[in-house]
Design a protein around this nucleic acid. Sequence first.
DNA 1: CGAGAATATAGCCATATAGGTATATAGCTA
DNA 2: TAGCTATATACCTATATGGCTATATTCTCG
Lengths: 114, 114
Amino acid sequence: MDDGLNELFSALSDPTRRAILGRLAYGKATVAELAKPFKLSQPAISKHLKVLEEAGLIRSGREANSRPRELEPDAFKKISDWIADYRRFWDQNFDRLDDYLSTVQGNENDKSGD
Amino acid sequence: MDDGLNELFSALSDPTRRAILGRLAYGKATVAELAKPFKLSQPAISKHLKVLEEAGLIRSGREANSRPRELEPDAFKKISDWIADYRRFWDQNFDRLDDYLSTVQGNENDKSGD
DNA sequence: CGAGAATATAGCCATATAGGTATATAGCTA
DNA sequence: TAGCTATATACCTATATGGCTATATTCTCG
């Protein structure tokens, strides 16, 4: 019933963690790279990464000596889905948007590129 | 720089508070009405409401003896905007969607209903 | 005005969280 | 294997948070 929203929102409530996600939006990064912009200790960053990973927002890889992190899209989608339930409150175009989404999803190969 | 995202996400990290927002999506409600579904004490609910209000997710009105709460759409939009920056990570249709949005916004009366 | 209803505030407790330093672990590389 | 690098874990401290009970505040109404 909860789908981890507690952990998700809680993880996002910290600015350091959001900044880390912002950095990861540009691509995979090691702990050291992620720690660089902050005045925090390395263990503090590791702790934040653990919180993010347990919330499902990132995942760890293994590359030689390091454990690079990258974003885990599903978690973002989960949040987006939650917020979408409130969309009608602020988005005047929401109804038509909804129509459009049904359209593209039911017509996947209509790739109107070029 | 922060725009209250800390408080926003923090407020949303509690299931009681999310449930309250869910109830308010159906319309304005008094504290007593909001408290009804929970086993929590009335002060506990009042505290949750205070957190929600300070985060900007709801606002209080005044009606006779009661202080009905209602949703504050801007806060939801703020979150939606934040998450939108990550949309390309999970939404394959995002680019086309983006196109569509520019289109409707620049062409309000183009109602392409079938 | 006085009583009662609706809600807020105060004060207390238990647990969670963020940060730090010290130390442990894992994988290269000489 | 020894030593170096990268990262994680343990443990401690301070503060924040959620819940409770008791009490205060604010209206409405007779």
